[in-house]
Nucleic acid binder design. Structure first.
Lengths: 201, 201
DNA sequence: TGGCATACTAGAACACGTTCCTGTTATTCG
DNA sequence: CGAATAACAGGAACGTGTTCTAGTATGCCA
């Protein structure tokens, strides 16, 4: 319930160069700490110190640890999206193309298991106050899936609904993995299965 | 990393009556607090006080807040399961019967939004150490779904896989609701849609 | 240029999950 | 029954997310 104006977690256009640099340093430090030790290693005091910013300033930019990590994930999805959308996903059917994209995404995330743990955990812990950041992440991922589905053609309402279901399964399987109930290979097997169940052409 | 033997979060048969009573009081207090104020209102000191148990004892029974809340959810799912399995779900198709059961479950949970918030949040926060309790919850829910699907007939491997997907969507939609991204009515609409997409007879 | 609002730093302070310690009560076993 | 062991009560103490305070720097406007 702060009353003073402040840089929002979603960057505004009116930021000064110094502010953009601070935000950048904060996100970089966050990703580094998360990659090394997961969710619990991202300690606000440590993030502040590494990004050479006072603790209060960190909280001005990102009002909670969850905001911080979800924002970090949004920037990662952004990166992934740019990389994957350079060319159309290969495959004859929708299922094949979606499988290609989701497998690449999954593998890319599992390469840094601790980082993924930190980000997914934050997504799950997000309450209503983090809605905007969470929507950014989900929109980015939905775009990836829908683009793969349509394979150049137009996306229908139905396509978007299907993409949402796949994304739900995708997240749920990551959680099951984090929860130690399935291993990394199962994650992909289950997602793949969901794809073929949901996207019967 | 405790080394001494202790009453596990999953009750053993060898509990004395006094221990069973303590566990019961703890779960009752947990549900009461959660129903009144959600996840954050379930404070370990408060739970201990209300159940007339020392803080250390509470931690002996439930080694963390997440264990405690997931165990509470397991007992709630148990209750729901007993209530719903009194009679076979009505409906001609698998989709109709599953929809019936999941709608009842969803409505039952949404009647106590704060309690649901607390339990779902704990499910999502569960790490590997809570795997046993989480599995108990998921097994209970999967049973509900599979029983509705088969409508008296035998359940196949495939049925169980489909039930897992529906459960993933079910949880994910609850999270979206908790995260303020969709409202209570959307939860049911989305789940229903997933049912008809996944269970095309 | 001076004044003023806003942003930032440094660090104390607070809240709650968790751990630990000390002494007491209950339980089990010889 | 008596002694050993485990369980419990009561409460202090610690760690980390979050908030608050006081002082300093920075950018903006007259």
């Amino acid at each position: 319930m702060t009353t003073t104006a402040q840089p929002p977690a979603l960057p505004a256009d009116s930021e000064t160069a110094a502010q953009r640099a601070r935000r950048e340093r904060i996100l970089t430090a966050t990703l580094a700490l998360a990659a090394r030790g997961g969710y619990e290693a991202v300690q606000m005091r440590e993030v502040a110190e590494r990004s050479e910013v006072a603790l209060g300033t960190l909280y001005r930019y990102f009002p909670s640890k969850v905001h911080l990590l979800v924002s970090a994930m949004a920037s990662e999805v952004e990166r992934l999206s740019v990389r994957l959308q350079k060319r159309q996903a290969p495959g004859e059917t929708r299922a094949e193309r979606v499988a290609f994209v989701l497998e690449r995404s999954t593998r890319s995330l599992q390469r840094d298991p601790l980082l993924t743990e930190a980000m997914i955990r934050a997504m799950m812990a997000a309450d209503a106050s983090v809605a905007a950041e969470v929507v950014a992440v989900r929109t980015g991922m939905a775009d990836l899936i829908v683009q793969a589905m349509r394979g150049g053609g137009p996306a229908t309402e139905h396509d978007v609904d299907l993409a949402a279901i796949l994304q739900d399964v995708w997240f749920a399987r990551q959680i099951a993995w984090l929860g130690g109930r399935i291993d990394a290979a199962d994650v992909w097997r289950d997602i793949n299965q969901a794809i073929s169940l949901v996207l019967r052409d």
